[in-house]
């Protein structure tokens, strides 16, 4: 599974074990250079390099949701001219809103289901699909509860994100158990409250850096975490229900949410959680984020929230320069 939004319940219902790959960070992206130019985002470059290095050996199918032009390129290469054969599914995520988008996404999920059933001979029934959707919704509820409780949870940033991001690979019931343990870790909390936005809290050194400098991420607006706070669907038709849930998250650039809605959401999130600063961890050349960036920064600064744009590269370690930027931001907080 590559970023960002995909119907988890569908893979589960078909008996697949969905594991998300955000990069993975720390991958040497050089081998991908023969296919994707270095000026393209590091997430698809790392993903492809990981695949070329045999990282997806035991994988039956790779899913590349259409989140942006960069993932579109990767999906297209894997579909048409794969450097290493591997079945690829490439669902399109509608950028329009309203009924037209839900109907399209439901049909897109139904098509995926048909493709998966072709491979496995026996497809799930409508009841199986609905049950899987409900299971995921229960895990989504635990996910939301965990994010809401963050200001009271005493875990370090690294530990908190390890718990919350286990949603990316654990089955729903197991994730709920992890969430419960994390939720119980309440206690005295300290640290400078900040909001983390961007795509993904990587490279790994980022969270370690925040922990080292006594920063506490109290609000998350990354595409990877906070923007996947899905609400439950309402329909009894499983594909439609999954589509409703996927479209229900907070405003997200990769879903094409209007800029004004997103800015209002992030500013409100910062205010609710008392964040004093916002860190925007954005992979280099990430179009969806970079267009919104100046408008978002201006709005946050106007609301008294200092902002710092950190350009990240998942194929590289967290740099000393980035560490200095974070520290300098903290030193300059009023």
């Amino acid at each position: 599974m590559l970023p960002v939004h995909h119907p988890r319940a569908l893979w589960r219902a078909h008996g697949y074990l969905p594991v998300e790959v955000w990069g993975p960070p720390g991958t040497d992206a050089t081998p991908a250079g023969a296919h994707l130019q270095p000026f393209l985002c590091s997430i698809p470059r790392c993903g492809l390099a990981f695949h070329l290095a045999g990282g997806l050996r035991d994988v039956d199918v790779v899913v590349v949701p259409h989140a942006c032009d960069a993932l579109q390129g990767l999906g297209s290469i894997l579909t048409d001219l794969p450097p290493r054969p591997l079945p690829a599914l490439t669902p399109y995520l509608p950028r329009a809103t309203g009924e037209v988008a839900v109907a399209f996404l439901a049909a897109e999920i139904a098509t995926l289901s048909t493709r998966l059933a072709e491979g496995s001979q026996r497809g799930p029934t409508a009841d199986d699909l609905l049950a899987a959707a409900l299971d995921e919704e229960a895990a989504d509820a635990a996910f939301r509860a965990l994010l809401d409780a963050r200001p009271r949870i005493s875990l370090s940033n690294a530990a908190f994100y390890e718990a919350v991001r286990s949603r990316e690979y654990l089955p729903p019931a197991e994730f709920r158990a992890v969430a419960e343990v994390a939720l119980a870790a309440t206690g005295p909390v300290d640290g400078i409250p900040v909001l983390l936005s961007g795509i993904v809290p990587e490279p790994a050194g980022l969270l370690a850096c925040l922990d080292r400098h006594g920063v506490r991420v109290v609000a998350d607006d990354t595409a990877c975490v906070g923007r996947r706070r899905y609400a439950p669907g309402t329909s009894t038709e499983p594909f439609r229900r999954m589509a409703e849930a996927l479209g229900s998250g907070p405003p997200d650039t990769t879903r094409g949410s209007p800029l004004s809605e997103r800015v209002a959401y992030v500013v409100a999130l910062a205010a609710q959680t008392g964040a004093r600063a916002a860190l925007l961890a954005i992979p280099g050349s990430c179009d969806p984020e970079l267009f919104a960036l100046p408008v978002l920064r201006q709005a946050l600064e106007a609301a008294g929230v200092r902002t710092l744009h950190l350009e990240t590269d998942l194929s590289m370690p967290f740099t000393a320069q980035a560490d200095t930027r974070v520290e300098a931001l903290l030193e300059s907080l009023p």
Binding site: G284, E311, Q321, T324, R325, A328, E331, S332, P334
Partner: peptide, 21 residues
């Protein structure tokens, strides 16, 4: 590195930018 710092009247760093990559 090249850095640009904006200092306020009281000497506080209001904003800064650094060269990328």
């Amino acid at each position: 590195d090249t850095k640009v710092l904006a200092l306020g009247a009281s000497g506080r760093v209001l904003d800064f930018a650094m060269n990328d990559r």
